[in-house]
């Protein structure tokens, strides 16, 4: 397996969707290839960083209470009921 193939298969490998023989080839390559190990690790870190960055933004936003928007939405309730 080449580095290019490994990168292409990476997510299927993480999600355990590869046939056993392909997964074994991939792991053999990983053992011998520090750049591919670095790629896999940083790919994992990327997913976590994305999740965490958004989750904290959400927590900040949850403390917001834009009154004009609350009122506009409550007014919409009238139109929803007339339908």
């Amino acid at each position: 397996m080449t580095c290019k193939e490994l990168v292409a298969f990476l997510n299927d490998y993480r999600e355990q969707r590869l046939p056993a023989d392909v997964a074994a080839d991939l792991e053999k390559h990983l053992d011998l290839c520090p750049p591919c190990r670095a790629y896999l690790r940083s790919y994992e870190e990327t997913i976590k960083l994305g999740r965490d960055a958004i989750a904290t933004a959400d927590d900040e936003a949850c403390r917001e209470m834009p009154e004009h928007l609350v009122e506009a939405i409550l007014r919409l309730r009238g139109s929803a009921r007339e339908d």
């Binding site: 580095c3 750049p35 870190e45």
Partner: peptide
């Protein structure tokens, strides 16, 4: 990422010095 004709990384990925948490 880009690769050479033989399937190696064109630019070798470096380890990240980061702990996401």
């Amino acid at each position: 990422p880009t690769f050479l004709d033989d399937g190696h990384h064109a630019i070798e990925p470096q380890a990240w010095n980061v702990d996401a948490a």
